[in-house]
Write a protein that binds this DNA or RNA. Structure first.
Length: 934
DNA sequence: CCTGTCACG
DNA sequence: GACGTACGTGACAGGG
């Protein structure tokens, strides 16, 4: 029995997003008990819907109702104005996964649930409201969004559900000073900070209303702007005409949204207990389930309390990992089935297969999707036909039985970019960068590697094979079985499709299972905040930095290589002369024999392998005995610079971009530091004059400069704060030279009488403290007798007793918990702390160092995560991170402004999560190259 | 593949 | 009382 919508009908239109955000902010971050999935917003949303349904009685009750949602963040307004809503904060990470659940909740309450890609909920509401009004019905829009006020009148009203306040034509006039049909004109003039609608500068709602009422309409006003008496207003309108007209287009709701349903489809329906109660049970809403069941005269559904044992078990039952349910997708219809399944589920595991390991150059060979454990599909798109040949003779034509690449991309793109669909990957930065090159921006995504790192840094590696073996008891197919290794290695596009499919599908399957297992642990182990604030959001930032790359001048490097070659040849001749024979200068073994056997120099010590140690410290000691060790040191320095830097860096210049693109490993260091490889741009020389010149090859393009900002003494500042050392804190507050201040405090030398040597010793002690000082280590570093070094340490602890306390407390904490924590709560596991013997010493020092190094790492991560938004409207790119330094490439004219913006972000990066008792100071430099900027 | 060496923070 | 020690990384060359 359906009623044709018309006179006497009453349509309720609920602004779904407003409900969700209200629910999200009203409730604490609740999680579902059984698996830790965040569920607070869904709970609030359901309560609001329930209360709403309950209140719908009496003569004013709706005959038709719909909840309208936004879909995706990109709408036609973004095409009009790319900054539209650009100042909105990103959706909180724990809210994203709840979005699809709110749709399911609406359907469970048997309320029509509508959204249309590319349109805001407001446009759909506008279209429906106009249709209903034209059909002679009444409309109530349940929202307090002022953008909807333009719709009020002629039977359309708004209802602020929270304040239970009806807004009619008079209400709109009270708010905007004009009738609803002129609201857009006022908004166009006044602009809107929330939505980033520009409007006319200097004109607010009051003035706008005044002008519109005087001239009748915005168009009339703009045409007759010259007549305005107030010079400021007149000028603003004349100067900003285009911007005002654009603003009007942005605030004007679209009443002609293409709808695939009619008003009749929105008729009020009673909830079906067999749908609603199971849903509430699935969400584990105990109170609401009971209440709803009671009202419906049904038994409350059973919600089992997860047993504590189940909560800590790492291996829930899942189907065995085998390839029986892996499917090769070769046509659009089959792919669409998988895409539909992903939409229904709200998440999917994704894996890409490519021709290589370098995500800047590798080509796509196939995609893999997994939605339920054990069920995965492989979509081959780039496999080459077999023809028996290899290398030059290998076929370049595509193999049969694949989807056209572009078709697959076009179909997958909306899914992979959909805000409400979570993508899951293992090391997703790689896949995201590959897909980015094909025009697909994967978001939002979870990364099992990063989840594992947040949970278990220090316990094990976070590669897929290690995780699969440890948590699933399954050894994935080694890639070597497909592509071989060494000289005969082939690229993935030469692998037969059926074999590739098994490998790829297994990877996606394993990834999904790991996610199902590890993700809930984040909440259970109270590490969700670490993952959500320090890991997940950093990944796309790093991806962008890697894509940016840094320009490296090949000629500079090449010239340096030649110069090094010549000097090395001269040194080599000299070395052979001094040794009395020719030998391989680069062989420590041969060198040791020459120094300690042939020449019988003192101090020859053999290591584990029976070879003499010939490290720099030993050669430096020997340099007083003979000329040879010094020449070896010089040769080694040049050899290092040439092989690792001036030669190798040239090989890393990307031919397409002319730049060097490093790869950052987010899980590379246990403490939270990043590591950099291929090439490592975190160890470019700087300490020696000769080495520093290599930084001259890192340049800015014409018209731009490099900007380098680095934290000054960040680890010592963190130590002063965490250990609560008042003398050090005060020194930092007063901006003193911290090493000199330490020396003064320790040795009683007034600051103005400080000698460089005493300061140097204090500096070594300060570093020693951060590393977990030992008399032996300090003695070796300072080249002083061990007793003397121990004396320094004793005196240091006497002057700063808080440091010893910090060390004792930290090691005690580590022994108790087998991990230590940064100020932000990042956990670094220290299982070795329980060991005995020399290993315990290592573990103890690592445990002392980790919270300090790790807190510094957390701080710069926070700065990096905030940086893209801070510099979004500046001509600047963030290129590199070197632990306490960030390097930017900036248009010359904006360099100083960017420096100040970035400095502010870096200096305040700990706030508001942690208040550091000591100011964080950032030094900035700029120049044509990295040497000048640093 | 492992070890020694050395570049960085 | 002896032992071996500064913390965290990655790249390269030599040598088995």
């Amino acid at each position: 029995m359906t009623t044709q919508f018309g006179t006497g009908c009453h349509l309720h239109l609920i602004d779904g997003s407003a409900f969700i955000f209200r629910a999200y902010h009203a409730l604490p971050p609740l999680t579902r008990k059984s698996d830790g999935v965040p569920i607070g917003a869904v709970a609030g949303f359901c309560n609001m819907l329930h209360r709403y349904v309950e209140g719908n009685t009496g003569p004013d009750a709706p005959t038709h109702v719909a909840v309208i949602f936004d879909k995706g963040s990109h709408t036609f307004r973004n095409d009009l104005y790319d900054l539209y809503k650009a100042n909105r904060d990103a959706m909180p990470e724990d809210l994203r996964p709840q979005m699809p659940l709110t749709r399911r909740a609406t359907e469970a309450f048997n309320i029509a649930c509508k959204e249309i890609a590319g349109y805001e909920a407001d446009d759909i509401i506008a279209t429906l409201a106009v249709q209903a009004r034209e059909a002679g019905g009444r409309v109530t829009i349940i929202s307090s969004d002022k953008d909807l006020m333009q719709l009020v009148g002629g039977g359309v009203e708004m209802l602020d559900a929270m304040k239970n306040l009806r807004i009619d034509v008079e209400g709109v006039e009270a708010k905007f000073g004009v009738k609803p049909d002129r609201v857009v004109d006022v908004q166009a003039l006044a602009g809107d900070a929330v939505d980033n609608v520009p409007g006319a500068p200097g004109i607010g709602i009051k003035t706008a209303a005044l002008l519109i009422n005087e001239y009748g309409s915005l168009e009339e006003l703009l045409d007759r702007a010259e007549e305005i008496k107030q010079p400021k207003r007149r000028q603003s309108l004349i100067d900003n005409r285009a911007q005002i007209e654009l603003s009007k287009k942005l605030v004007q709701l679209d009443c002609n949204t293409p709808l695939e349903f009619t008003l009749d489809d929105l008729e009020v329906r009673d909830p079906d207990p067999d749908v609603l109660l199971p849903f509430l049970a699935e969400m584990e809403f105990r109170t609401l389930s009971r209440r709803v069941a009671e009202q419906m005269g049904k038994d409350a559904p059973e919600i089992t309390e997860p047993s504590p044992a189940a909560a800590v078990s790492d291996a829930p039952e899942a189907p065995a990992i085998d390839d029986s349910a892996y499917e090769i997708v070769t046509d659009a219809a089959a792919l669409q089935t998988w895409i539909d399944r992903a939409y229904a589920r709200g998440h999917l595991a994704l894996d890409t297969e490519t021709t290589g390991l370098d995500d800047m150059t590798a080509d796509l060979v196939g995609f893999c999707l997994c939605i339920d454990a054990g069920h995965a599909c492989y979509v081959p798109v780039g496999h080459k036909a077999e023809d028996g040949g290899e290398g030059l003779f290998a076929s370049d034509t595509l193999a049969e039985g694949q989807m056209p690449l572009q078709t697959a991309l076009d179909m997958l793109k909306p899914l992979l970019e959909d805000d409400s669909i979570l993508k899951i990957g293992q090391n997703m930065k790689y896949d995201a960068k590959i897909l980015r090159r094909y025009g697909v921006t994967v978001a939002p995504y979870d990364d099992t590697m990063l989840i594992s790192y947040a949970l278990n840094a220090g316990l094990h590696n976070h590669g897929m094979d290690a995780l699969s073996e440890r948590y699933l008891g399954h050894t994935p197919i080694p890639i070597k079985e497909l592509i071989g290794s060494g000289k005969s290695q082939i690229t993935f596009d030469r692998v037969a499709i059926d074999k590739a499919a098994k490998y790829a599908a297994e990877d996606a399957d394993v990834t999904l299972r790991l996610w199902q297992l590890l993700k809930p642990r984040l909440h259970r182990e109270r590490l969700a905040t670490i993952y959500e604030t320090l890991e997940r959001p950093l990944s796309p930032v790093l991806a962008q930095m890697e894509v940016n790359g840094i320009q490296v001048d090949r000629n500079t490097l090449s010239r340096m290589s030649n110069a090094f070659s010549q000097k090395m040849a001269a040194l080599e001749a000299e070395i052979h002369e001094l040794a009395g024979e020719t030998f391989n200068v680069g062989s420590p073994k041969q060198l040791g024999e020459i120094l300690f056997e042939k020449m019988s120099l003192p101090g020859g010590k053999k290591g584990k392998t029976g070879a003499y140690a010939t490290g720099a410290d030993i050669l430096e000691d020997l340099a007083t005995e003979h000329d040879l060790p010094g020449r070896i040191l010089d040769w080694r320095q040049l050899s290092k610079l040439k092989s690792t830097y001036t030669d190798a860096l040239q090989e890393h210049i990307n031919p397409e971009t002319g730049r060097v693109h490093t790869s950052y490993m987010q899980t590379g260091a246990n403490t939270g530091r990043l590591s950099s490889s291929d090439p490592n741009l975190q160890n470019i020389p700087v300490r020696s004059e000769e080495g520093r010149r290599i930084r001259e090859a890192f340049v800015a393009p014409e018209g731009k400069v490099l900007l380098s900002l680095d934290y000054s003494q960040i680890e010592l500042r963190i130590l002063a704060h965490t250990a609560g050392i008042d003398a050090l804190k005060q020194a930092f507050h007063e901006g003193q030279d911290i090493h000199a201040a330490t020396a003064s405090e320790m040795f009683g030398v007034p600051l103005d009488e400080m000698t460089p040597d005493v300061r140097r010793q204090a500096k070594a002690i300060n570093f020693g403290v951060i590393y977990g000082i030992s008399g032996f280590g300090l003695a070796r570093n300072l080249r002083i007798p061990r007793a003397e070094a121990q004396g320094f340490i004793d005196r240091y602890f006497e002057r700063f007793p808080g440091i010893r306390e910090y060390m004792d407390e930290t090691t005690a904490f580590a022994k108790e918990n087998l991990y230590v924590e940064t100020l932000f709560g990042r956990r670094i596991h220290t299982p070795e702390i329980a060991a005995s013997g020399p290993r315990a010493g290592f573990a103890k020092r690592a445990a002392i160092n980790a919270p300090i190094q790790g807190t510094a790492a957390d701080i710069i991560r926070r700065a990096m995560i905030r940086m893209p938004e801070a510099i979004a409207n500046l001509p600047a790119k963030m290129l590199l991170q070197v632990h306490d330094e960030l390097v930017f490439e900036v248009e010359e004219s904006a360099a100083d402004e960017v420096a100040e913006v970035a400095r502010r972000i870096m200096e305040n990066a700990a706030d508001p999560a942690v208040h550091i008792d000591v100011p964080l100071v950032v030094d900035a430099g700029k120049g044509m190259n990295w040497a000048e900027a640093h």
